[in-house]
Design a protein around this nucleic acid. Sequence first.
RNA 1: GCCGCUGUAGCUCAGUAGGUUAGAGCGCUAGAUUGUGGAUCUAGAGGUCCCCCGUUCGAGCCGGGGCAGCGGUACCA
Length: 509
Amino acid sequence: MSGKKREIRPKPRLPKGMRDIDAAEIRAVEQMLGTIRQVYESYGFEPLDTPAFEYTDTLGKFLPDQDRPNEGVFSFQDEDEQWLSLRYDLTAPLARFVAQNYDGLPKPFRRYQTGPVWRNEKPGPGRFRQFTQFDADTVGTDNVAADAELCMLAADTYKALGVPRGSYTIRVNNRKILDGIIESAGIDLRDANNHAKRLTIMRAIDKLDRLGLGGVEQLLGEGRKDESGDYTKGAGLEAAQIAKLIDFITAARGDGGSGAMTRSDVLNAIETHLGESATGRDGLDELRIMDELLSAAGIGADQIAFEPAIVRGLEYYTGPVFEAELTYSDGGDAPSLGSVGSGGRYDGLVARFKGVEVPATGFSVGVSRLYASLQKLGKLNADRASAPAIILVMDKERTADYYKMASTLRVAGIRAEMYLGTSGMKAQMKYADKRGAPCVIIQGGDEKARGEVTIKDMILGEKLSQEIADNQEWREGQPAQFSVKEGELVEAVASVIARHGGSKPGADK
RNA sequence: GCCGCUGUAGCUCAGUAGGUUAGAGCGCUAGAUUGUGGAUCUAGAGGUCCCCCGUUCGAGCCGGGGCAGCGGUACCA
């Protein structure tokens, strides 16, 4: 006790909301990214990359140095004291890029982009402070066909990723319709005093999925107290106004019933509630055109549906908004897994820089969230790339020979590695086991004398071990291994890998 | 941000009205087995008992204050 000095050691730990990503996930995600890229490319979008951080004012955030430092974003100062922020999405940097290079770009400008984004928020289940998005945007046209196309692109993307029809839904709404219905409830949106009220109303509607109609109703009125006792102040609407809004939300909902409404059913329901609001009419007309285009493409409401309670980002979207989610297909009352993609029309973003309106619309796949959901649903094809064959080092003097074997296998296109540790054979076997190696290659003095190598099939061996209780038998029986001439090494290893790698798909579920 | 719950080994947790060197299972390392992953047995490594202050002869346990994690809620481009 006396001589024990207290060394201060750093505790190995991850920053809040961050995570490490293992080999299996990297492989799976890279495959997903490749698939998404293919779909986006097929629609004619071109790739673009922009840096991880931008000047803070570019991203549209207030300077984070005063009363609310780093609110929502991660920020730091350059040596010239200018504030920089890590990007929190891929859209704001796109707006900067377009504004900066406007004259030279083809209009409409269509680009796709993927990469990590960061948000300085409280992490939760399925919510991290770094995650990957994959965006496609069409900038420079107010044609609703661009919005319809992005919805189709989204559907095609989930399909290509192996999400079967019926297991995803893209729900579409239009911000103009929301504004219209608020106006028709007697709230004048031209009155600046009603600005905050409008936001509160939309936030309330946005919570329909989570809180249900009752919760929305409370939030439109006085407010709501949650189960932890926390209280959220409501919009303070009058009973008649609340009834009107609730009525509107309900009208176009299938009530979770079996008979899904068609898109035009929903539009008709909306229309009867909309009254004379010009903004609302605009929004309705836009959705009608989208419906025509989608229907002409043979896409029904089971894939792309209209849903008047979809809201999305508040000060951001100006027209159609979309949200994609995965759903269990096995019926039951299993909860939704949350949004795995979203987008919409944002006609004001580029104007921040240029003064002129540059209409734009985009869709973003939440890659990290989607991966997690597919994982949870067991929809990720688990055919991991085969682990390397391991060449055991039986005699350290012959390291060069072993290395040559590894090299021979690699030339033949087989992943192979010579054991690089310094432990004995038992430890090497454990190593190979932990690595998931399909086989190990053994050449000790005996094999060398005969000009042979021994191949041990680790996967078969594991299977056989379950039937052997006696260690003596297990060790001496040397199950699942065989010897071949040195010249037949490649062929023998390839056959073992083929035996397992090319096995029946779906059999191991 | 607000409300609630929880902090003891890598993980899951015990810990006796406050009392010597703080435990178990799993995991890890190694031996039993001169060249073989599993099983079994054995041994070993690994801990500022979240932190600080206080009460006490004495605190993992009691009191106060922090911090962190989890859950709910708010915000979410």
